[in-house]
């Protein structure tokens, strides 16, 4: 703390303030003032299915340019079909066994993937927070499945919050990342997404993901799969709605 005191005193001297007099944020209420987002939040909640579908179109268009493979599923069963197809057709990169790791999320559980593989050797893991072997299971997995909290159409971004049972490595270590995103969780742009984030009372770590991992460090030649997943598959869950 002593270091902090002298460090900040230095800063105050540089700013022409009295070095020893600590300035309090309450004296400058405008410094941390955030714009009112009530209207934005109202807009997000009040979107009709047509408007949401437009956002999906924009998301997929922008995602396409970032090499995101996208799928639209009208039911959880359809979404599961997409996942099963990916697990069947893709090959592991770092070993020879098909391990799949998934977040502890109701939508992912509802895919009932355990019921789908009767003849193939596919091992499914869920990141339950009491499991002590999650790291090893994640390293062994070639596909990681998450259900991001927010999708941003304008920048084709999914926002993944770190929560109990939803660690960061699931969307990072496997060669393939599948993000299952509900249509109603898509917002138009980052301004709306940040408004939603500000709603949260507590924010742990979080990550914005806009596409598969990539690098252009060798002669500006674009290569996908530098350190993170080389493919990002987005499944938009757009269940038909009768009312609203």
């Amino acid at each position: 703390m002593h270091k902090q005191t002298t460090f900040l005193a230095n800063v105050r001297t540089a700013l022409g303030e009295a070095p020893q007099v600590e300035r309090s944020k309450s004296t400058f209420p405008r410094l941390f003032a955030a714009p009112d987002t009530t209207e934005t939040l109202k807009k997000i909640c009040g979107r009709t299915v047509t408007e949401l579908n437009e956002l999906v179109t924009i998301f997929l268009h922008n995602g396409n340019m970032l090499n995101i493979s996208s799928h639209i599923a009208e039911s959880l069963h359809e979404a599961a079909d997409v996942v099963v197809e990916l697990i069947r057709t893709k090959e592991p990169e770092f070993n020879y066994v098909k391990h799949v790791i998934m977040h502890d999320h109701p939508d992912i559980a509802a895919l009932e993937l355990w019921n789908r593989f009767n003849r193939e050797a596919v091992t499914l893991h869920t990141t339950f927070s009491r499991d002590r072997q999650i790291t090893d299971k994640t390293i062994a997995s070639f596909i990681g499945i998450t259900a991001p909290t927010i999708g941003v159409a304008d920048s084709a971004t999914v926002i993944q919050l770190t929560e109990p049972g939803r660690p960061r490595s699931t969307s990072l270590l496997p060669s393939l990342h599948i993000a299952l995103l509900r249509r109603e969780n898509i917002v138009a742009d980052l301004a709306e997404a940040y408004a939603l984030l500000r709603q949260k009372s507590y924010l742990d770590s979080l990550v914005f993901i806009s596409g598969p991992s990539k690098t252009a460090d060798i002669e500006a030649h674009m290569v996908y799969g530098a350190h993170g997943p080389r493919e990002l598959h987005l499944i938009v869950l757009a269940e038909p709605v009768t009312e609203r």
Partner: peptide, 18 residues
């Protein structure tokens, strides 16, 4: 936006495997 924007604000919680 870059492919990843990560926000970190402290150590991970005890029940977080990574």
């Amino acid at each position: 936006l870059s492919t990843y924007v990560s926000f970190v604000g402290g150590p991970s919680s005890d029940d977080d495997p990574d």
